[in-house]
């Protein structure tokens, strides 16, 4: 998302409200948001509540509803390993995406052919569905993929796809999300950095000084916002880890989907329990990001 414009929007004067301040006008204004709010509430609140109920044994496919936490402990160890693995994959790919995306934003900001080239190339990957990204990453990086063929690596090719370190999965997320982070940060820098940079240069700041004291702080809110969206997305997304990963240990979404599709009837609550854990961690990540944003003077 173009979080870039959050900042610019805030610096503009608030528009005057068109319809006075009568109670009727206020109700009418509020009514405009009602359709969107109802839909979102149904899906988000309804969906979460139903998942929680299923995970606690309140909506079994067969048998009597009974409150129990059995679904959470059924795969105790695997569930914790899944949390760790998903955090590691999402964390590693987000860090890479932020580093590469920030570098890309700096280049884009410089304009000229370098910037235009990088901007054009990164927007190429934006409309790529993740499932397509995963498929093409597989064609590139698998043991018999394009790179292994071109380098004639055969047996010496490292276990990138389905390997111990989940490298192909991290690569796909980092690739897609670095373009996202890059474009968002470039958007922020584009509107705000020129004057600051020139002032800093006038005051004698070197290139590194400008980077550290001007560009980085200016980009930080956009970096945090886009990084968080990328983190939560890769933490809770299924298809890439399913296509490019290995069958054990499993990231949370892959584990949840396997249990969800299992023929065993008791597996549904267990799938719901994995989903609840995923949702709680995602929400936690969002709250941490908001707390970080609040600490940044520029954001306030």
């Amino acid at each position: 998302m173009p979080a870039a414009e959050v900042l610019t929007a805030r610096t503009r004067p608030r528009p005057r409200t068109a319809a006075g301040h009568g109670t009727k006008a206020r109700v009418q204004g509020l009514l405009l948001a009602v359709p969107a709010v109802l839909l979102v509430a149904f899906v988000v609140v309804g969906g979460s509540a139903m998942v929680a109920a299923q995970s606690l044994g309140l909506m079994p496919l067969v048998g009597r509803p009974e409150l129990s936490t059995a679904a959470y402990t059924a795969h105790g160890g695997d569930l914790l390993v899944g949390v760790g693995l998903s955090l590691a994959i999402a964390g590693a790919s987000t860090v890479l995406a932020c580093l590469i995306g920030f570098a890309a934003a700096l280049i884009m900001m410089q304009g000229r052919w370098c910037g235009k080239l990088v901007a054009a190339m990164s927007s190429l990957s934006i409309p790529v569905p993740h499932i397509v990204g995963a498929a093409t990453a597989g064609l590139l990086l698998a043991d018999s993929g394009l790179l292994a063929r071109v380098f004639g690596a055969a047996e010496r090719w490292p276990d990138v796809v389905g390997g111990q370190w989940w490298l192909a999965v991290i690569f796909e997320y980092a690739w897609k999300e670095s373009a996202f982070v890059g474009l968002v940060v470039a958007g922020t820098l584009a509107t705000r950095s020129v004057d600051y940079e020139e002032t800093a240069a006038l005051l004698g700041a070197g290139r590194l000084g400008r980077l550290r004291h001007v560009l980085l702080p200016l980009s930080l809110p956009a970096l945090i916002i886009s990084g968080t969206i990328a983190f939560i997305y890769s933490f809770g997304s299924y298809e890439v880890a399913w296509l490019l990963g290995r069958p054990y240990p499993e990231p949370l979404p892959v584990m949840a989907l396997r249990l969800y599709n299992s023929v065993t009837l008791t597996a549904r609550p267990e799938a719901a329990a994995v989903a609840v854990v995923t949702a709680v961690v995602s929400l936690g990540a969002a709250l941490v990001a908001l707390a970080c944003l609040r600490k940044i003077p520029l954001w306030r």
Binding site: S48, M50, I232, G236, P253, A256, Y260, A272, T278, A279
Partner: peptide, 9 residues
């Protein structure tokens, strides 16, 4: 909220 969570519910 990861989409699969909402979908399960």
């Amino acid at each position: 909220l990861p989409a699969f969570v909402a979908v399960f519910g």
